[in-house]
Simulated assay, not measured.
Amino acid sequence: MPQPNQAALDFLLSRSSRPAKTLKTPVPTRDQLLPILTAAARVPDHGKLVPWRFVVLERAALLRLADLVRRLGPGLGIDPEKVEKSALNFGGSHLAVAVVFVPRDSEKVPEVEQLLSAGAACFSLLNAALASGWGANWITGWPSHDEGFCREGFGLAAGEKVAGIIHIGTETSVPPERPRPDVAEITTWMTE
Rank of each mutant, 00 (worst) to 15 (best):
N5V: 12
Q6S: 09
Q6C: 04
A8F: 10
L9P: 07
R15D: 10
R15S: 06
S16I: 04
S16V: 05
S17Y: 03
P19K: 09
A20T: 15
K21D: 14
T25S: 09
T25E: 15
V27T: 11
P28N: 08
Q32P: 01
Q32K: 02
Q32N: 04
Q32G: 02
I36R: 01
I36M: 03
A41H: 10
P44K: 09
P44D: 08
D45W: 05
H46Q: 12
L49C: 07
W52Y: 15
E58C: 00
E58A: 00
A60E: 15
L62T: 08
L63G: 04
L63H: 11
L63C: 06
L63M: 10
L65R: 04
L65F: 01
A66K: 06
D67C: 00
V69W: 00
V69N: 05
R71C: 00
G73I: 04
G73P: 08
L76V: 05
L76R: 14
G77D: 05
I78D: 02
P80C: 04
E81F: 01
V83H: 00
L88C: 06
H94T: 12
L95Q: 11
A96E: 06
A98S: 14
A98C: 12
F101M: 13
D105M: 10
K108Y: 08
E111R: 15
E113H: 07
Q114H: 03
L115E: 14
L115Y: 14
L116T: 11
S117R: 12
S117V: 08
A118H: 13
A121E: 07
A121V: 03
F123Y: 15
L125Q: 13
A129C: 08
G133Q: 14
A136K: 12
W138M: 11
G141L: 13
G141C: 13
W142N: 08
R151E: 14
F154N: 09
F154W: 06
K161N: 08
V162S: 08
V162A: 05
I165P: 09
I165A: 06
H167T: 11
E171I: 00
E171Y: 02
E177C: 02
E177L: 08
R180Q: 14
D182Y: 00
I186F: 08
W189F: 02
W189T: 07
